[in-house]
Computed example of a mutant assay.
Amino acid sequence: MKELSGKVAVITGAAEGIGRAIARRAAGEGMSLVLADIDQGGLDALAGEMAAAGTACLALRTDVSDPQAVDALADAAFARFGAVHLLVNNAGVAVAKSVWETTPRDWDWVMGVNFHGVTNGLRAFVPRMLEGGQPGHIVNTASIAGLLSVPALAAYNASKFAVVTVSEGLHHDLTLRGAPIGVSVLCPSWVKTRIADSSRHRAEADRVDPATLSGVSQKAGLAILKAVEAGITPEQVADSVFEAVAEERFYILTHPQSRAAVEIRMTDILQDRKPTLLSF
């Protein structure tokens, strides 16, 4: 989808980080915006910024893990603008724990936001996008952790691998129907966001206390935090997203070294090797 001016973009997880950068870039392309996030304060701030810049914008607090909330988001988007052309299922959270330390509530939270946030978005928006018959594009935010298995991120890895395979299947489903809707899956490596502090959105009793985790998990959590702080900017990721949309490119890998790491993983599988512990 090359022509964006005058089109409508829906972005979840829009209040900060990658979502906010994508929203700003979409506004710069002349798009109208539907912004969703669970962070009301951040959402209001971004909506105010967009209004001041003259961008048509609808902002709605949304828990993407709740199917009814996402249905309401879709209802509001189509009621306001009549169409959706770019759907960015971006909301995401993380818990840094080994698999045996990950609690049932951790699994429900991470899978609810990262995976069902995507599937809820697809179920709520795709039928209406198809009915509209207009060219469009869907971007699902996964992670390089959806292509590589990272230590101490069991639930996050599982959720992001799930997003990748659902996105691949979505591409096939739309292609077989001859639909004018492209698909991309975003698989960034380290980006300067607050993903390492995403538990701030949980009830206090569910927040991770590093003191309760094994030493290996604590070290991994600190390493992830440092890697995020040293990552690329959300604006660089947004640039990669819009390049991919224009080129109708499916996989969006934002870091050059990621490709070499994915190749090593594929070789492990094809040569029946044990998984290589990769640095990316």
Rank of each mutant, 00 (worst) to 15 (best):
D108I: 07
V139D: 11
L153D: 00
A155F: 10
G112Q: 09
R123S: 08
T165I: 14
H137E: 08
I195K: 01
G182A: 09
V191N: 02
V183L: 07
N157H: 05
H137G: 10
V166W: 05
A154P: 08
M129F: 12
N114W: 03
V139I: 14
F125L: 05
V166S: 06
C187T: 03
D106M: 06
T175P: 08
S167T: 11
V118A: 07
T193L: 10
P135K: 12
I195T: 05
P188L: 08
L147K: 10
S189M: 12
S149W: 12
P180R: 13
N157D: 06
I181G: 03
A162L: 04
G117K: 04
P127V: 05
A196P: 01
E168I: 09
S198F: 02
Q134D: 03
L148E: 02
L147G: 01
V163I: 07
L186H: 02
D173M: 13
A142H: 00
S184H: 13
S167W: 12
Q134M: 12
G146C: 04
K192W: 09
G178P: 09
T119M: 13
S198A: 13
S143D: 00
P151M: 11
K160E: 00
A158G: 04
G112M: 09
P104K: 12
R128N: 13
V150T: 07
H137F: 15
A142Q: 00
L186P: 01
D108Q: 15
A158W: 04
D197A: 15
G133E: 08
V191I: 15
H116M: 15
G112I: 13
H116R: 14
I181R: 06
